[in-house]
Simulated assay, not measured.
Amino acid sequence: MSFAVPVVDVSAYVRDGSPGERAAVAAALDEACRTVGFIQVVGHGVPAAVADGLAGAMDAFFAQPLEVKNAWRTPPEVNRGYSPPKSESLSLSLGVEAATRMNDFFEAFNVGASQASYPHAPGLPQPDYAENTWPDVAGFRPAVEAWSAEAGRVARTLTRVFADALGLAPDFFARITDHSLDVLRMNNYALPEGTVRLDGDLTGMGEHTDYGIVTVLWADQVAGLQVLGTDGGWHDVVPADGALLVNLGDVTARLTNERWMSTLHRVKPPIIDGTIQRRRSAAFFHDGDVEAVVAPLPECLAPGEEPRYLPVTIGEHIAAKLRGSRAGVVNTAADREAARVLAARR
């Protein structure tokens, strides 16, 4: 069976199309979420200039010497700032012990929604809503903030489609994303010579599922991203021209009782003539309110079907995942996801 990531045009929701047009989009997205969990989203309305600005900002930051970038590191519990190569193991967010032997070699810079982003909701817990640390790179902050605003708009557009596709109240996702734990993670896979050893089994970013509701990904059209298909094999995925790659996170899988898939994915480094080919990506994670409680929704349970998950707050769930990826503490609450990783490895 061939593997393909479905293309879904969401312009009917961006321009407030007719009920029939929106219903067709919702049906197409429901099919994609049931069968693949990754979508090539077009018709999103993000200006090309904003994407170009993001790419330029990333290039300017990551081109700096490592000792300069390290000045923008934060403690593991603060999901902001710079992460140098081999400082994280994404597979540990799923509780896979073997990942401790192979830290991921990507470098990243994170920004996210802070208390200042939500003045209407005072007293948000820290460090969940930590203030950002902005590097002293000309034009970096305005370019990144412009992209974050567009990616956030796309994410919220998609959750409107989600609600229609699942037969939920139109404002269902709005009620759990009033002060969403949103994070933009900018990744770079072009590392200086000698940083890693080309031993034939490098991991740019280990197998993992995303943590929240939905991820909106900008990426170079360079090979590396791989998605685990229902056939148990890993498949290469490259964004189509003008498309944003979108995938579901664990919160949505929990809400739908796995009617929709939080798909395992990883990055295997593209190596050409013994050199790692440069690859960049920027993932906008739309995760939901820290105190929102998520559990399988009655609308997503078939008659007689049992919930696969116990209720948990979004904050508790994401904290466990981050303790795995950033602090190296195995996530023991991810048994279902870990089983899928181990089955794929076999």
Rank of each mutant, 00 (worst) to 15 (best):
96 V>W: 14
203 T>N: 10
210 D>I: 01
339 A>P: 14
241 D>M: 03
167 G>T: 05
143 A>I: 06
299 E>P: 08
326 R>S: 03
131 E>I: 11
233 G>Y: 07
251 V>K: 01
113 A>S: 15
101 R>H: 11
257 N>S: 12
208 H>F: 01
229 G>D: 01
104 D>I: 08
96 V>L: 10
44 H>V: 12
161 V>Q: 07
100 T>G: 00
342 L>C: 06
229 G>P: 06
46 V>L: 09
153 R>D: 07
336 R>Y: 05
171 D>E: 11
307 P>N: 12
115 Q>E: 15
221 Q>R: 15
311 P>Q: 01
25 V>L: 07
157 T>I: 02
333 A>C: 01
263 T>C: 13
46 V>K: 06
114 S>C: 00
229 G>V: 06
135 P>R: 05
88 E>T: 15
66 L>P: 01
207 E>W: 01
194 G>Q: 05
149 A>V: 08
106 F>L: 14
44 H>A: 13
77 E>W: 04
119 P>V: 00
184 L>G: 10
186 M>W: 01
84 P>F: 11
316 E>Q: 14
47 P>V: 06
125 P>H: 10
332 T>W: 04
297 L>Q: 00
100 T>L: 12
275 T>H: 10
155 A>R: 08
219 A>G: 09
235 H>N: 08
345 R>P: 04
18 S>N: 03
12 A>V: 03
61 F>N: 03
235 H>K: 10
161 V>H: 02
206 G>V: 00
90 L>R: 05
64 Q>P: 06
104 D>S: 12
293 V>K: 10
162 F>P: 02
173 F>M: 04
47 P>E: 07
177 T>N: 11
196 V>D: 11
77 E>G: 14
265 H>E: 13
206 G>R: 03
81 G>V: 10
167 G>M: 01
345 R>M: 10
197 R>F: 03
127 P>I: 02
210 D>V: 04
277 Q>A: 15
204 G>F: 01
49 A>C: 06
317 H>C: 06
336 R>E: 00
310 L>S: 15
271 I>K: 04
219 A>I: 04
203 T>I: 13
342 L>M: 11
253 A>Q: 03
24 A>D: 12
13 Y>W: 12
173 F>E: 08
263 T>L: 05
184 L>P: 05
162 F>Y: 12
10 V>S: 04
256 T>K: 00
269 P>A: 12
220 D>V: 14
144 V>Q: 08
71 A>K: 13
